[in-house]
C-alpha cells in the first residue's frame, strides 16, 4: 500500500503562467470573505437593528483594538491589512476541512505573505530612519542574518504547522482505509470491501486540533509577528 503525499496540483498553464489548485482555492476564499463582508455591512444604521451589524462592528473594533494595543494608535491604517491577512490565513487553513488542498499548505503562498511583511519592515525602517540609517546596522552580518531569518522563520512556522496537519491527516486516512479493508475482507463481497467505513467520524477529532485550533493559532501568530516586527522597525 503506497501513500502519496504531494504538494499543490498544477491545474492549468497559460504560456509561462502556472496556476495551481491552491491559487484557485484562494480566489474562491477571497470571494467568500468579500461576500461575507459585503453582506455584513449591507445596510448599516446608526442605531443597530440587526445582529449582523453588531457582528460587523465587533469585528472592526476587535481589529482596531488589536492594532492599537500592539502597534499604537498611529498605525490605524494598518488594521485592514491585518484583518485581510488574518481572514485569508484562517479561512485558507480551515478550508482543509472541506477536503480541498488548503492554500496555506503551499509554501509559495506563505512565503509571499512573509515577504510582504519583510518588505513592510524594510519600508517602515527606511521611512523612520532614512536609507542609510536603516541599512547601516546590516554592516554587522549577524543583524543581516537575523533580518533574513525573520521571513524564513515566519514562513516555515506557518507552513510547517499546516503541512504537518495535511501529512498526518493523509497518513491517518490511508491507515483507516487500510484497516477498514482488513476488517471488511471478512465479508466476501468485493463491493463492500471497498468502502472505507473507519474514515467516517474518526478523523474529525484530529481535525479539531489540526484544522481549527492550529489554523486560528497560526493565523493569529502570523498577524501578531507582522505587527510587532513592523512597529519595531520604527525604532
Amino acid at each position: 500500500m503506497a501513500v502519496e503525499i504531494t504538494g499543490p496540483k498544477v491545474l492549468f498553464t497559460i504560456g509561462p503562467v502556472v496556476v495551481t489548485n491552491t491559487i484557485v482555492t484562494s480566489w474562491v476564499i477571497i470571494a467568500l470573505i468579500v461576500a461575507v463582508c459585503y453582506w455584513l455591512t449591507k445596510d448599516l444604521k446608526p442605531v443597530p437593528e440587526t445582529k449582523k451589524q453588531i457582528v460587523a462592528e465587533k469585528l472592526v473594533s476587535m481589529v482596531y483594538d488589536l492594532t492599537d494595543s500592539t502597534m499604537g494608535k498611529k498605525w490605524r491604517n494598518f488594521a485592514p491589512y491585518v484583518a485581510a491577512l488574518f481572514a485569508y490565513s484562517f479561512v485558507s487553513s480551515m478550508s482543509g476541512l472541506t477536503g480541498v488542498r488548503a492554500p496555506t499548505s503551499d509554501l509559495s503562498i506563505i512565503l509571499a505573505m512573509a515577504l510582504v511583511t519583510f518588505t513592510m519592515i524594510q519600508v517602515t525602517g527606511i521611512k523612520a530612519k532614512g536609507f542609510w540609517g536603516h541599512f547601516k546596522k546590516f554592516l554587522n552580518p549577524l543583524n543581516l542574518i537575523s533580518e533574513i531569518a525573520t521571513p524564513v522563520s515566519m514562513t516555515f512556522r506557518h507552513f510547517g504547522n499546516i503541512a504537518a496537519g495535511v501529512v498526518i491527516t493523509t497518513l491517518l486516512y490511508a491507515a483507516l482505509a487500510y484497516f477498514s479493508t482488513v476488517i471488511l475482507n471478512l465479508i466476501p463481497i468485493s463491493f463492500i470491501q471497498q468502502i472505507p467505513v473507519l474514515q467516517v467520524g474518526l478523523p474529525a477529532f484530529l481535525s479539531i486540533y489540526f484544522d481549527v485550533f492550529t489554523s486560528f493559532l497560526q493565523a493569529y501568530i502570523f498577524i501578531m509577528l507582522t505587527m510587532v516586527y513592523v512597529s519595531m522597525a520604527e525604532d
Binding site: 498544477v10 509559495s108 495535511v166 501529512v167
Partner: peptide, 17 residues
C-alpha cells in the same frame, strides 16, 4: 494535472498571492 512536491516553490504562485 501534475502534482508538485509537498515542499515546492512556484514563482507564479508568489505573484498571484
Amino acid at each position: 494535472n501534475t502534482y508538485l512536491d509537498l515542499v515546492s516553490f512556484v514563482p507564479w504562485t508568489l505573484i498571484f498571492t
